[in-house]
Design a protein around this nucleic acid. Sequence first.
DNA 1: CTCTGCATTCAGAACGTTTTGAATGCAGGG
DNA 2: CCCTGCATTCAAAACGTTCTGAATGCAGAG
Lengths: 178, 178
Amino acid sequence: MHKNLVAVNSSTVSGMGRLARFFGFSEVMGRLYGIALLSPEAMSLDDLASELKISKGSVSMNMRALERWGMAKEVWVRGERKKYYKAESDMWQVIRNVLGSREQREVLLALQVLGDSVEKLQLAESELSAEELKLAQYYLERIADLQSFFKFAQIALETILGSAESLDFEAITKIEIQ
Amino acid sequence: MHKNLVAVNSSTVSGMGRLARFFGFSEVMGRLYGIALLSPEAMSLDDLASELKISKGSVSMNMRALERWGMAKEVWVRGERKKYYKAESDMWQVIRNVLGSREQREVLLALQVLGDSVEKLQLAESELSAEELKLAQYYLERIADLQSFFKFAQIALETILGSAESLDFEAITKIEIQ
DNA sequence: CTCTGCATTCAGAACGTTTTGAATGCAGGG
DNA sequence: CCCTGCATTCAAAACGTTCTGAATGCAGAG
């Protein structure tokens, strides 16, 4: 195989590993995704394991994780008992999967916790000494800041997820703020 | 101290720890930030250490990291030899610091690596066998998808950072595809 | 029913990261 | 110039995470 093809493959795979780390996934998940993404044919667990030189057990678990995240799909091959996977190559779909489940859950949880805190502070108000009241006030201000951050995040997520249908990659580079 | 104040404090602190993890910082950094954020007074390293029950060495290193990220500032107290820190409570400032350095660097690096890959593939084109050429073509398609993703990310970052001065959340809701 | 070839699981090993605490450095006061 | 009180550093330890590989499970073929 031409050395440049090899070089491109390997830098893409390690780039995907890095990206995965950055998004809080394991590096191996990212590399497996990269390998699958650059393979025109679906790959078996053994193929993937020998490509990355890691154990088949690890491949099995990581590919199932990728599948749960909608980043890889199982492919049935007639007359084969092996499992074959191919990467989800629609980046927008991948982004939607991740933002729509993990990130959104995280934001909603934070908003809920902050809301609870406000409630607790308000309920306690009448029972507080003068000094405690001052502190409670201070807490409320800081919490309000946090709330606006998370509300911002929530709106941003919803905006991106909402316009998901119409986004194609040509268009993406033409995003503008009005 | 009223139990609700304590409860709010502790859930906010652990929430900040969680958030920090989520953004790829250490949990302790997040907790220290939380403690400082909820303290009306600047805090010394000893204060912070005894609050979180961790070693002073760890506090020292983590607070310096927070300082480098623009998430905490040193405060000089007249006639005191101790170091005092207060949290940067302007969330937008914090977001700008993080997006503007770490995230943007990451995106630019990715774009550069992908650009290099395209170049490598084009340079090699004339030296490839028919089969290799088909694979190179496939690589180029996948890489183009990745490039679109990162360009999107780059534009989104620039948009947020550009409207940084008074980042109002209204703006992001108006992102549109043309 | 057994054999075969594969996928899956999980305890233990390997590894990487974070924390600790003793040693060190540093500055101001006397 | 030494003493004191603090911050900082860093090697070793603790800890958490991820990987491995043997054991197990499972399904189809004969």
